[in-house]
Amino acid sequence: MAQESPATPWLSVIVPVLNEAATIQACLTALLPLWVCGVEIVVVDGGSDDDSVALARPLANRVLQSQCGRARQMNHGAQESQGEHLVFIHADTRLPRRADLLIDRALKGPACWGRFDVEIERGFALAGLVGWSMNRRSRLTGIATGDQAIFMTREAFDIAGGFPDQPLMEDIEMSRRLRRLSAPACLAPRVTTSARRWQQHGPLRTIVTMWWLRLRYWCGVSPWTLAGEYTDVR
């Protein structure tokens, strides 16, 4: 049975899901050490037609229903959660050990938001290089992606207005908003994310597609236009 949240948990983990029956149990089981330390775990389902919701219920404080769309789901989870700070992770992402203490330490400094370095599971030959380039690019630009487990104070989330209601690049746009408040805390401990996206479409094709989409987004192409060309959009 799901554990009751403390009156005011200091950290809430928000997990948006859509048809993640294959991954959600492993994701939430990995969060149990944080849960028993009083961290609130909030799953936000966007209308799954598999067993995602049933599998998540015993392993989270709350399982919410939301309109489909990763940004909408994350915003709904943040609004319904109780934590003073927030961290957003994908269902195929694993946080590093004692991520709660790492986040707490980072947010006691000048930064009001941050992210972790990322490591892609060794599912293809270029996984290490892709992860390294993601981390390097993020440190140089101050922009984080959802794979890097973006975290922030609730105050920063509110000032930024939450994630923009758009179907793609919501993490890029949120980083832009948060960057106006402070530089990000770039934590070297790594989150681990699944290689399934690269395996499904092929690493080279996926890399080229993502760079092409980001370049066009930076040039002003609408995220709705881009979402129509991206088969993994949530």
Rank of each mutant, 00 (worst) to 15 (best):
V118Y: 00
V118M: 04
V118P: 00
E119C: 05
E119I: 00
I120R: 02
G123L: 01
A125T: 13
A125M: 10
L126D: 15
G128A: 07
G128H: 06
V130P: 04
G131A: 15
G131W: 08
S133V: 11
S133T: 12
S133K: 12
N135F: 02
N135T: 04
R136I: 07
R136N: 08
R137T: 13
S138R: 06
R139L: 03
L140P: 01
T141C: 04
G142S: 02
I143K: 04
A144V: 11
T145A: 11
T145Q: 10
G146L: 13
D147Q: 14
A149L: 12
A149S: 15
A156Y: 06
F157I: 01
F157A: 01
D158Y: 04
I159H: 11
A160R: 11
G161T: 08
G161W: 08
G161Q: 07
G162N: 10
F163M: 12
P164H: 11
P164T: 12
P164I: 12
D165S: 13
Q166P: 00
Q166F: 03
L168Y: 07
M169L: 11
M169D: 03
M169T: 06
E170Y: 13
I172T: 15
I172N: 10
E173Q: 15
E173W: 05
M174H: 05
M174C: 05
S175E: 04
S175I: 00
S175C: 03
R177L: 14
R177S: 10
L178W: 08
R179W: 06
S182G: 05
A185N: 09
L187H: 08
A188W: 00
P189L: 04
P189Q: 05
V191F: 01
S194M: 03
A195C: 09
R197D: 06
R197Y: 05
Q199V: 09
G202Y: 10
G202R: 08
P203F: 11
P203M: 11
L204Q: 12
I207Y: 12
I207A: 14
T209V: 01
M210E: 13
W212P: 01
R214F: 04
R214S: 08
L215K: 11
L215R: 14
R216S: 02
R216C: 03
R216A: 14
Y217K: 13
W218G: 06
